[in-house]
Design a binder for these strands. Structure first.
Length: 817
RNA sequence: GCGAGAGUGGCGGAACCGGUAGACGCGCCGGACUUAGGAUCCGGUGGCCGAGAGGCCGUGGGAGUUCGAGUCUCCCCUCUCGCACCA
């Protein structure tokens, strides 16, 4: 009698058994002979219960971890929570509860949900970044960066979110608005802590060549973010004062086309020069305006806006004197804060020139063509031949860039230069829920690091954590007052906390040495597990988290703590789970939650829905894939058929397997193995469905199917761990878990078909098909092809001029037309 | 504007090297079992013509290469994502 599929009867039962057996513990034994595999998922923020995005991402990551386990690897598959940060803090403020209480309550709920979903985590390594024993080492790492000059404090114009009342890193500003709350970001000049990631710009770029298993678009996004430009730095001289102002250009071949010169409004020379020339009255309002303008408005700034500075710049290549301007379209943050303007070949310069009636001089023309500068309506693409360019007339451009740059250097008028768009990472936050920065400010000793043996600098309880422009820690009555660790005098703690992205930049190291009291991790443990075998998570971290983690790893490499420079050689991004083309959100009221599905149909169903919906990296539109709410999902029905098939196969017992089933068994093992190696979960599942159908057909015809049933159950295990376990232990009678069984093997010879469909075409159109032996030769194929009915009809009265034979698959007769 | 990717049945999606387009599943149609079906089982299901055998058309549009193109090349259209005064 075959069993009905009733997941409620066994799913939770196996959870307890797995816990007791310690099934998913990574081995601590250094002598364990197995190869190791580190399956890492991007750890979640503890905001609310798990949502559909988690369900999909972690289902995929879990398949990888379980598959590797079945292949005989010693697998490290850890879990933790990125539990500090604005996200948790804002939610706590909104609800009026302590961030700690809210955060840890969510963590409890999320871990219960993860467990219920059957994730194969090694819970013994669980971590939370807001635990003192974790952030102690976040602080320790900060101090090592500080010692190396990679953490520093400076006054700088920064992005300020008026709603969250804190500064943001450049990477957290999206289209001029706060990444978290969408409020337009303001500009403020503040003293803040930075990590010197710019020192690593070139290495972050170079090492990307090794990331061949990253999605192409993520690599591209990082490359664009780092934004390397090659060009030249050229020094112009102010005619009136003789002072030298360097500019950066990627097109030194257009130097002869310079007709004016522009300073950024905040350029340090501007005020002095304006006062000298008597134009300060005109310049000052522009400066005020820019200082008050939020970054959003700044981005929309008009290219035509700007005023004459009243002084002149001397072009070093030809001694020409051109007027200087001050304009908001030139940014202080990039290059040198001043530019040479070449209106003929740069659109922004062109627009400015037309608005201010400045000359436009063409210096690069298409060969044999003459263009009238007065008639131009936009800047020209600068590819062609250099003209009116002194010694370089007739040189092809842009090929001449290198020549011109070399010439500039030899003449002492410039030098080749490289610029990056990447800025240093602003890590301090004026918020409560984060790791305190372990620095003491002493009136006599300056910035003094908190000694290692006094770490962690604990976050105080009972703080008014409402944001108010300065850090809540600064408002605590006693916390900040300490003796200077250096001189013992009265001093104050730094009251800022660290950006959460600092916490998440090294958590994957901690998993290797959980709870180590002597350091952030033991190098030998990291050596054992890392680099990560497979990293799974969302594209939303394509820049921030991944770039910072790569930076941290390189610094740790330089410190001699790790032996590799890239933490995640293989990265996999899951798609989003959306609804009717739009992201799920409370305001739209279109949220579908995973746990009710787990409760109603079982965890295996929830996992299979996600994995079978389509390629892992593609978005899933819930509206399009979901069955009616009360209707049994298709994958659940399939599990029912698997139960019936396995039960029947057991009942049939040791009866010979039909040859067709045997071949399909081998072919399926081969195919599913290959699909799993390429994360093609959807096609792997479809192959298992085909095998299920064939097992049932084989049983129907009186054959045995035990072998096939066993293989099916084992291959089902990564996708539907509960159903597989129930079938393996109860129906198939194994004393041990399917999850520690050995992945079934296949015989390549048996995996191939013994008969093949010979397709016969006439002029490329299919006219006949025949089942033929797989080893049929050309002559045999031709013979069968010629004899086929449909072919003879199609060939009637036509002359065959060519016969294409690809035995045993295809014959194509080409006739005279 | 720049960069990347994608367009295949009613739907999600298959199709490794160019070689049977539409695997697998959802939905739908018909049937069986049923008091019932949101359960289960069997059959059908790209479009058009045809009683049938069979034929014609068909992978966003257009050209090309080839015996043969969803797949390769060129042009165009549409959509998605990322970046966006970066000198």
């Amino acid at each position: 009698m075959t069993r009905r599929y009733e997941p409620a009867e066994f799913e939770t039962r196996w959870l307890d058994v797995w816990d007791e057996e310690g099934l998913y513990r990574a081995s601590e034994d250094p002598a364990d002979p197995r190869e190791r595999f580190y399956a890492l998922d991007m750890f979640p923020y503890p905001s609310g219960d798990l949502h559909m995005g988690h369900a999909e991402a972690f289902s995929g990551g879990d398949v990888v971890a379980r598959f590797k386990m079945l292949q005989g690897y010693d697998v490290l598959h850890p879990i933790g929570w990125d539990s500090f940060g604005l996200n948790a803090e804002n939610a706590a403020i909104k609800r009026g509860v302590d961030p700690k209480i809210w955060t840890y309550a969510n963590i409890d709920q999320q871990s219960a949900s993860f467990r219920r979903m059957g994730m194969s985590f090694d819970w013994s390594r669980r971590l939370q970044t807001s635990d003192p024993e974790y952030y102690r080492w976040t602080q320790w790492l900060f101090l090592r960066f500080f010692e190396r000059g990679l953490a520093y404090r400076k006054n700088a114009p920064v992005n300020w979110c008026p709603k969250d009342q804190t500064v943001l890193a450049n990477e957290q500003v999206i289209n001029g608005a706060c990444e978290r709350c969408g409020t337009p970001v303001e500009r403020r000049d503040l003293t803040q802590w930075f990590y010197k990631i710019t020192d690593y710009a070139q290495r972050l770029l170079d090492d990307m060549d090794a990331l061949t298993d990253w999605p192409e678009r993520v690599v591209t996004m990082q490359r664009n973010w780092i934004g390397r430009s090659e060009g030249a730095e050229v020094t112009f001289t102010i005619q009136e004062t003789g002072e030298e102002i360097p500019i950066f250009t990627t097109r030194p071949d257009t130097l002869w086309g310079v007709t004016f010169f522009v300073f950024a409004v905040e350029h340090p020379a501007v005020r002095r020069l304006a006062e000298l020339a008597g134009t300060w009255d005109a310049v000052a309002p522009l400066l005020d305006k820019v200082r008050q303008t939020s970054l959003v408005d700044r981005e929309a700034a008009d290219t035509k806006e700007g005023v004459a500075l009243g002084v002149h710049a001397v072009n070093p290549v030809n001694g020409e004197v051109v007027p200087c301007f001050v304009a908001p379209y030139v940014l202080m943050e990039y290059g040198t804060g001043a530019i040479m303007a070449v209106p003929a070949h740069d659109q922004r310069d062109f627009e400015f020139a037309r608005a201010h009636e400045l000359p436009v001089r063409i210096v690069i023309e298409p060969p044999g063509e003459h263009v009238d500068a007065d008639a131009m309506t936009e800047a020209m693409a600068h590819e062609g031949v250099m003209v009116a360019s002194g010694p370089f007339d007739g040189e092809p451009s842009p090929a001449s860039i290198a020549t011109v740059t070399a010439w500039l250097a030899s003449q002492g008028r410039g030098a080749s230069a490289v610029r990056y768009r990447l800025r240093d990472w602003l890590l301090s936050r004026q918020r409560y829920w984060g790791a305190p920065i372990p620095i003491v400010h002493c009136p006599s000793c300056g910035q003094v690091p908190v000694p290692d043996d006094q770490l962690p600098v604990l976050l105080p309880d009972e703080v008014d954590f409402q944001p108010g422009g300065e850090s809540p820690l600064a408002r605590h009555p006693t916390w900040k007052f300490v003796a200077c660790p250096n001189c013992g005098g009265e001093a104050e703690r730094d009251t800022d906390t660290m950006d959460t992205f600092v916490d998440s930049s090294w958590y994957y190291f901690r998993y290797c040495s959980p709870g180590d009291p002597d350091g952030p991790f033991r190098p030998e443990d990291v050596e054992k597990w890392m680099p990560v075998g497979q990293y799974t998570g969302g594209v939303e971290h394509a820049i921030l988290h991944l770039l910072y983690s790569r930076f941290f790893t390189k610094v740790l490499y330089d410190m001699g703590m790790v032996t590799f420079v890239e933490p995640f050689p293989r990265l996999m991004n899951q798609g989003q789970v959306i609804y009717d083309g739009a992201s799920m959100s409370k305001t739209k009221g279109n949220i579908v939650e995973p746990m009710p599905i787990v409760e109603r149909w079982g965890a295996d169903t929830m996992r299979l829905i996600m994995l079978f919906a389509g390629p892992f990296e593609d978005d899933i539109d819930w509206k399009l894939i979901a069955s009616a709410p009360d209707r049994r999902p298709g994958v659940t029905s399939w599990l029912g058929r698997v139960f019936a098939a396995v039960g029947d196969a057991v009942e049939r017992g040791e009866v010979a397997e039909p040859p067709a089933l045997e071949r399909l068994r081998h072919r399926t093992i081969k195919g599913v193995t290959e699909d799993l190696e390429r994360f093609r979960f959807n096609t792997a599942i479809s192959k298992l469905m085909v095998l299920t159908n064939e097992i049932r057909a084989g049983l129907e015809s009186g054959g045995g199917a035990l072998e096939a049933a066993r293989a099916l159950v084992q291959m089902l295990a990564p996708f539907a761990p509960f159903a597989a376990e129930e079938l393996w232990r109860v129906e198939l009678g194994s004393p041990t878990s399917v999850h520690v069984s050995r992945w079934p093997s296949f015989d390549a010879a048996k995996a191939s078909e013994d008969t093949i469909t010979l397709v016969v075409q006439v002029d490329g159109k299919v006219r006949s098909k025949a089942e033929v032996p797989a080893d049929l030769d050309e002559a045999g194929a031709l013979e069968i092809a010629r004899a086929a009915d449909g072919v003879r009809r199609a060939l009637d009265g036509r002359e065959v001029v060519k016969e294409i034979v690809r035995a045993p698959k295809l014959v194509n007769f080409v006739t005279r037309r």
